[in-house]
Amino acid sequence: MKIAIIKYNAGNIRSVAFALERIGITPIITDDADEIRSADKVIFPGVGEASSAMKYLSERKLDEVIISLTQPVLGICLGVQLMCNFSEEGNIKCLGIFNQDVKKFSQTEGVKGGLKIPQIGWNTISDLKSPLFKNIKENSYMYFVHSYFVELGENTIATTNYGINYSSALNKDNFYAVQFHTEKSSDVGQNILENFIKL
């Protein structure tokens, strides 16, 4: 099986590759359109800033490549945000796969004593509804690091609470996206990656 990780100017791409290697898969890390199109599965990871990432992708026409993919695609963290319509981070138009906007956690919306931003750490995922979460228990802990979030909507397949309930995972057709870092979420994260590989 050929797994492609999209290479762009975002961090933690190697971490995702290492996580796949731990489950016995050697991915290719590439920004070549043909390599990406011919892969069985595509992973779109990333830690970084939305507007500079979008700029990089569009300069290389990778934005068009991503939205035209028909095999299963998994966005992780920044990947999720780039797959939405619009991001408040740098006020940038994104790929528009999910018909939702990306907003910043608000200090005032917060829990008692105020929300700390970014959200850093382990939080639960619930209301799981996708083969991506096969054999994953409700309220499993996943590792999150983010300041921006996607509201609940028709594409939501997992919910997390940080001040408010938001989409911690989304799915539409062949596109899947998770706000948490599967590659850093211990054994549960590994199981979700395995589920994606088996889709």
């Binding site: 971490s15 290492f18 996580a19 731990r22 850093k184 211990s186």
Partner: peptide, 8 residues
């Protein structure tokens, strides 16, 4: 380390 552990 990054190759071997699955936490941040």
């Amino acid at each position: 380390i990054a190759k071997h552990i699955n936490i941040p």
